[in-house]
Nucleic acid binder design. Structure first.
Lengths: 206, 206
DNA sequence: CGCTACATGTAAACGGTTACATGATTCT
DNA sequence: AGAATCATGTAACCGTTTACATGTAGCG
């Protein structure tokens, strides 16, 4: 059996690139970055503060970002990071590598796979909760996309705006959530149909 | 800022549940499981042999699975695992917990986010490779789904078949890959449009 | 003769999460 | 008075990946 492409050295370490890509939108503190990533408006990667501050330090040591301490009144001092020349180069180099494809990895599907032995009501509740969360996330994405487009169609937007990258990541998030919702609806319907049957007759094989 | 639900104790450890769910389809060796997961027909989780054999040992020690050594001629002996009573109970208990929702996490989106500073040709090649991979994966899923349905419609299938769980996980994979393809097409179109512009005039802001 | 399939493992490294520490300010 | 926001970090742990080890059988 074969397992994906034996990275001889120079591993991905994609978090740094995700941070660099985000910092292209403007200088930010660790706290700012944590907020941007948590809000979901940055939907291509995830960070928690503990990892974030450590990684920013390492990135500065590696010359990918520069920082500047900003003194504040009534607030703790903060450290403002911006992309350095080395960071730009690293991002360009990284973008030429072939990216690993992603796949579904979802605990909910583990439950669904075990449909035959688990409680259907609990499962339906879980699916329903997922659907609600996806609807909310979808609304968030759409509220961010609308002001970017400013009424223009996609083609014109692609030519004119410097936010095309951001737009495409949001479009991915939107498509992802729409598909989640569609699947939740399908799953709910079929599990409910099976349950209805189970309450009136006994199980058949095949 | 708040970070998702502080699991006080009893962490998820979803791999064991993924393995248990798979073993419901029938007893298997570590090698069998590795193949099933690698083939992509099991699309809800992923394992590599190193982790697999170690986890199966731990699961046996915990009473979730039982094993039986099968002596073979001309082949190394193998260890055949099957779900134990404890495993069934654990799976039922697990299914009542609320699952964590998933989100996109994709290196390709990091590149796309950094559209303004990276090489467009390299990016378009990467997107194209992704699209091809998704088309192939989609065909695989569909070749597995067709024989499950055996010409029946979904509603009837849901009532009759004991493979509804498997079907729904495959439907998720199908929807996921279809959405990947749709996004790749959109991204290709818009990046190409921008590139065409970039070759004739200079960059504008907004 | 070399490649793939069968079959099971160990050890080290890595990336990410959780828990904890600290402390001022502003909002309800 | 208590909660939330601003702001930055450390240490321990856990799940996953990578690299390595070992050996037979069958195919072209």
């Amino acid at each position: 059996m074969e397992y994906s492409g034996t990275r001889i050295s120079e591993v991905a370490v994609a978090l740094r690139h995700a941070l660099l890509a985000n910092l292209l939108d403007g200088a930010a503190t660790g706290y700012d970055l944590a907020r941007r990533f948590a809000a979901g408006s940055t939907n291509y990667w995830h960070v928690r503060p503990a990892q974030l501050y450590a990684e920013l330090s390492r990135m500065e040591a590696a010359g990918l970002v520069g920082s500047e301490t900003v003194a504040q009144e009534r607030r703790p001092n903060k450290r403002l990071y911006r992309v350095a020349v080395g960071g730009l180069e690293e991002l360009r180099r990284y973008a030429c590598e072939t990216s690993e494809r992603t796949s579904v990895k979802d605990e909910l599907l583990v439950k669904v796979k075990a449909l035959g032995v688990v409680d259907h009501d609990a499962l339906l509740r879980d699916i329903s909760a997922r659907r609600s969360a996806s609807v909310a996330q979808l609304e968030l994405y759409e509220s961010i996309v609308a002001p970017l487009l400013r009424g223009r169609d996609e083609a014109r937007f692609a030519r004119e705006s410097r936010h095309l990258g951001t737009y495409l990541t949001l479009r991915r998030g939107i498509g992802f959530e729409q598909e989640n919702i569609r699947w939740c609806d399908e799953a709910t319907k079929l599990v409910a149909a099976r349950q209805a049957r189970g309450e009136t007759s006994s199980q058949k094989s095949a």
